[in-house]
Simulated scan of single mutants.
Amino acid sequence: MLFKCRFAVLFLLGAFFAPGTVHGADGPSDVAARDMELRLAVTPAVMDYAVNTIKPVLDASPDKDRLSQLLKVVDVLKDPKTGVDANRIAPDAYFIYNLLDKVKLGFLYTWKFSPEQKEMLQRWHSKYMNDHPADVFFAPTADEIIKTRAGFGCTHYARAFIVVVKALGLVEKPEDLRYVVSSKADDYNRALEKQDLKMTINGHQFVLVKIDSRWIAINTSQREAVQMPEGFRPESCSPPSNISVRFESYPPGIVFLLRKIGKDFNDDCGDNSLSRLMNISRSGDPQDAAFKWEGYVSADSNGKL
């Protein structure tokens, strides 16, 4: 089973953890430290990857229009050899290791991995899984993802995409590239109906880019683009009215509801933990656990590009 986006969270939480965690305010330890990290920074490692891995592919491509170049970036990020998931470990491995490590038996599980993967597994476990094990989906910075090539989820791909696009200057205005957090419509409706603050709301992270005055949603996990409705503005994403997006790579009926959009390509939306992400899914605010959006009724029409 492939875990390419936040859909994996519900399965993993159900499989490895007892239900009942309330996703409210974060604890002061790891999350406070993460707040000091810039998750969308163009670091030396990011610049090296952008210039030496991404740029040669873009230069060799005959398609020079902006959208084609941006989609080509997704191709490279997802390439088995050059992509940011080249050292990927399946997400369930982190949770299995976490359980074994609690009883000092983690070493029994790491023999199956390469030395690089073993080091990375232990590093990410120590750095990102103390407050809540599922934070490994959401806490790594773009720099960490690119340096380790260990990405495995939609958050990781979206962050990596934004920083390499910034590094290469493929989008000139910071406000023309935005990080997006969305919720899966049926999950949100179920949680809203029950007023259940314990329910995990799955969703998807991707990006919005403005090209020739129109906003386009790019699925950085699957290489696809969807044109947003005429008149759409990122600033219109606020409760209670829903704005929906559907990507054709997902089964029919799966609709994503926009919940938080960065102000520019430096804004990471603050979704660096499961608890903050669940708050965003309900209210659009990482610090507010209340349900602020109305229930989703019907899908908006989106033009696939």
Rank of each mutant, 00 (worst) to 15 (best):
N279A: 15
V180G: 15
K81W: 09
L10W: 03
D186K: 08
A93K: 12
D187R: 08
S281L: 15
I218T: 00
A90P: 04
K260L: 09
N266C: 00
N266S: 00
N302Q: 15
P115K: 01
R149N: 05
D264W: 12
L121T: 03
L208E: 02
E248L: 10
A41D: 05
S114Y: 06
N130T: 08
V297T: 03
N98D: 02
V245G: 10
L258P: 06
E193W: 06
L305G: 06
P229L: 06
H125V: 08
D212L: 04
P239H: 12
V103R: 03
V180K: 14
K64S: 10
D26T: 04
I218C: 00
N202R: 13
K78R: 05
L10F: 05
L274R: 01
Q222E: 03
V209L: 04
G253C: 08
C5N: 06
F7P: 08
M36E: 05
A158I: 13
M47W: 02
S183Q: 13
N302I: 15
S249W: 06
L197H: 06
L197V: 07
I96G: 00
P91D: 09
S301N: 12
K104W: 08
P174D: 07
S68M: 08
D63W: 13
P286R: 00
F206W: 09
I218F: 00
A93E: 13
F3K: 11
F152G: 10
S182W: 12
N130P: 07
F232M: 13
V180Y: 15
A142S: 12
K198L: 05
A32G: 11
R159P: 14
S241G: 13
F17Y: 15
G169E: 07
P62K: 06
A158E: 12
S281C: 15
E175P: 05
R223V: 13
N272R: 14
V164S: 10
I96K: 00
L13S: 14
E37I: 09
I216A: 01
R88I: 00
S273E: 09
H156F: 12
S126E: 12
